[in-house]
Design a protein around this nucleic acid. Structure first.
Length: 741
DNA sequence: TAACAACGCTTTTTT
DNA sequence: AGCGTTGTTA
């Protein structure tokens, strides 16, 4: 192996890579090459025979980051697959450890990891059983409280409520039952993965020492986003040599809502004596304009370590600030920009649209489908969270553990077996009284003739099927088992009978599930990993535009970045401000900073004057909006402002077909400014005049679309069937009556 | 019990 | 718009 890998590093990076003994804190600014440092450091440790690959614990924040890091490390050390087995996320590594010591916390090694939907369902069930009002105690809120306790390392018996927290008493009560239920079902949630590990490390010195001794070196990425329990997990694994290296950037801390504590990084040198601190301040990603714009924004935060990122790159284009009359115009601009200019020089893979909230992706999805640009939405709906996939997995789960009540309840009447709500409720009651799982309660009720005769036959068929499949599950492979179940349960037939496009795509998804299962050796292995799998799609295949939330974009970089929706209330998000005030604004600002610093060459920041919420059934769904404060906070030297607001009275459907370029005549930017000062509400489509002198059936002519006939009228908006263009919505003043002459 | 209509709430960010 | 919950009917 050649030693060139060190030569491509700058001095600070080299120091970081070559520091072997003792705690190391790397403060790495955005784009300063921290992944390179981490991967090279791992390789360097192995080259210098400081340890074996399997003695390195390397923790990343996402699976994506873990995969990328593994790939790069393996490349550096010559492709020995599985040479760094302990590289992964806190959750995946905890999963691995917990499988080995499950009994220590009263679980079987093949426990199931439940997802958020299951968590909420379980909490609902408990609330119902306890006769607690669901409306007054939303399961989501309770789940949030439980998660927070878990992030703080608190098991139910360790939670103490002060006077201000009386309202959490119900959550605490549920938490206790929730944990018991999970144990009974041999399930854990995401939080448990880490919490159980910590419990084991604390309770069993032998186990802890085993891992401490094994991990000669620990590396942690994105350290600014670790929370209390994750930090404790690390502290328990560090041995006396204190060879722990953490990398982070306080300006990129964006997970406080998940319990992330910046103080973990700020106090690191206090926790570990003789910490070596290295700052990486040279940026290798962005042009000077982008970097300066981002730096000027983040300098508005009070609580941060001042730092001076610098770049040897050219100035580049200024950051483009663009305003639009509504979200659709914004989407049209982005797609135009991509189609007209970018597509020539930039691969679609190098273009990203980063949004604050997931719902914003829809606007772009619709636009790209319409004009046929390939795109991918990352982290949207996860494959295994789809209904049909969860159903199929529930069958497998129930076969594996018949006391998995969540799985039981999900599929007992899916496909329909005429076992309705009331029957399920009865099973619940008996299960509670007899302290049985739903499955065993059903058997009990059959034996004791508690069901109505018809229901009994149906329930009996179901449980017998499950038992039969359970029996043969050890004889045939897991893929055949799934096929058999989908076939014999009537699930496939149910979808075929539906004859809808949705059902067809569900069948497709089940096929995909089937092929994805082949990657695993057996059913256990499949079930153990399915929940931690973010997506089974080959997400990064093909040349496509990337659409994702800013959170999901953490750690990634793109040639061109679009940031739509920079409006007060959306970015910064109102809910976050409501909940946490000033601290929240600072975190939102960091989020904007992360978003901006993803861009290498071109950065577009966009906002609309009117934003559509909750569909567009009626005009009330349109909300006037103001540009984000973050736009004002960026130093004007590095930005260029363009106003694309078309005549406000224009109909949004209609404007879809006009080119944006034709309209730079309205002083929208200045008007917006004025509106903010006067605190006036922006005039929006909602206030259009609401009458017209056209009638349904009348023939009309439109400048662009030619002749057509009115088929529906709503206020001053006409639905017209054009001869050439088909049905379109147009505002009345853009069409002329076709007079008899 | 199933099928369907009516209603109301949604959307912050994720392993 | 889309989903889950509630109410109505067969």
């Amino acid at each position: 192996m050649d030693n060139n890998y060190l030569n491509s590093l700058n001095n600070q990076q080299k120091t970081a890579v070559s520091h072997f003994e003792g705690p190391l804190l790397i403060l790495a600014g955005a784009g300063s090459g921290k992944t390179k440092v981490l991967t090279t450091r791992v390789a360097n440790l192995i080259f210098n025979k400081k340890c074996f690959g399997q003695q390195i614990l390397c923790v990343t924040f996402t699976n994506k980051a873990a995969n990328e890091m593994r790939e790069r490390v393996l490349k550096l050390i010559n492709n020995k697959s599985n040479a760094v087995p302990w590289l992964g996320t806190f959750h995946s590594l905890s999963n691995k450890i917990l499988r080995k010591h499950a009994e220590a916390v009263g679980l079987k090694p093949n426990f199931t990891i439940i997802d958020t939907l299951d968590q909420i369902k379980l909490i609902r069930n408990i609330l119902e059983a306890e006769n607690i009002d669901i409306k007054q105690n939303p399961p989501k809120q309770i789940l949030y409280n439980i998660d927070r306790w878990k992030n703080l390392g608190l098991v139910p018996s360790n939670v103490t409520l002060n006077k201000a927290e009386v309202e959490k008493a119900i959550s605490l009560k549920i938490y206790k039952i929730y944990q018991e239920k999970l144990k009974m079902m041999n399930c854990v949630d995401f939080g448990d993965l880490i919490l159980h590990c910590v419990t084991i490390f604390q309770k069993f010195d032998k186990i802890r020492k085993f891992y401490q001794n094994n991990f000669k070196y620990i590396l942690v990425d994105e350290f600014q986003d670790t929370n209390f329990i994750q930090n404790l997990w690390l502290q328990l694994l560090v041995n006396d040599n204190k060879n722990i290296c953490v990398v982070g950037d306080d300006d990129q801390s964006i997970y406080s809502w998940r319990g992330a504590e910046i103080k973990n990084i700020l106090n690191f040198e206090k926790n570990f004596k003789n910490t070596k601190i290295i700052k990486l301040e040279q940026n290798y990603r962005s042009t000077k304009n982008i970097l300066s714009a981002a730096s000027s924004l983040i300098s508005n935060n009070d609580s941060r370590h001042p730092k001076k990122l610098w770049s040897e790159f050219s100035e580049g284009d200024k950051v483009q600030i663009q305003s639009f009359s509504d979200g659709l115009q914004e989407a049209i601009f982005i797609s135009d920009q991509i189609e007209k200019t970018l597509i020539k020089n930039t691969k679609l893979n190098n273009i990203a649209i980063l949004v604050r909230a997931a719902f914003q992706t829809r606007e772009f999805e619709e636009r790209f489908i319409r004009i046929g640009l390939p795109y991918r939405i990352i982290g949207g709906l996860k494959f295994y969270e789809r209904a049909e996939i969860k159903d199929a997995v529930s069958y497998l789960r129930l076969i594996k553990h018949t006391n998995d009540d969540l799985a039981f309840e999900r599929i007992i009447n899916q496909p329909k077996r005429s076992i309705g709500e009331s029957s399920v409720k009865k099973i619940h009651e008996v299960a509670r009284k007899e302290r049985l799982s739903l499955f065993d309660a059903s058997l009990h009720m059959i034996d004791n003739k508690i069901f109505k005769p018809k229901t009994e036959i149906n329930v009996n068929n179901f449980v017998q099927n499950i038992l039969t499949w359970k029996k043969i599950s050890s004889e045939i492979d897991h893929v055949s088992l799934l096929e058999k179940i989908l076939d014999e349960s009537g699930y496939t037939q149910m979808l075929i009978n539906e004859r809808s496009p949705e059902a067809e795509s569900r069948l497709e998804n089940l096929k995909e599930l089937r092929s994805s299962m082949k990657v695993y050796d057996n059913l256990d292995e499949f079930l153990e990993n399915i929940s931690l799998q973010t997506s089974l799609d080959e997400e990064w295949d093909g040349d496509k535009i990337n659409i994702m939330t800013v959170h999901a974009a953490k750690g990634l970089e793109f040639e061109v970045v679009f940031l739509p929706g920079l409006e007060e209330g959306l970015f910064p998000h109102q809910k976050s401000i409501d909940d946490n005030g000033h601290a929240a604004v600072e975190e939102e600002r960091r989020l904007a900073y992360v978003a901006m610093t993803r861009a290498k060459n071109n950065l577009f920041m966009l906002f609309a004057n009117n934003r559509k919420f909750f569909g567009n059934k009626n005009v009330d769904d349109w909300m006037p909006s103001m540009p984000s404060r973050f736009i004002d906070e960026i130093d004007k030297e590095f930005i260029e402002i363009t106003d694309n607001v078309i005549n406000e009275n224009n109909d949004f459907e209609f404007s879809q077909e006009i080119q944006v370029s034709s309209s730079k005549n309205s002083p929208g930017w200045l008007r917006m400014k004025k509106n903010i000062e006067n605190k006036e509400r922006v005039k929006s489509i909602a206030f259009c005049e609401n009458f017209t002198n056209f009638t349904v059936g009348e023939g009309v002519k439109h400048e662009d679309f030619g002749e057509g006939k009115i088929i529906h009228i709503e206020g001053n908006k006409l639905l017209i069937n054009f001869k050439k263009y088909g049905e379109k919505k147009v505002i009345d003043k853009f069409v002329m009556k076709l007079s008899a002459d």
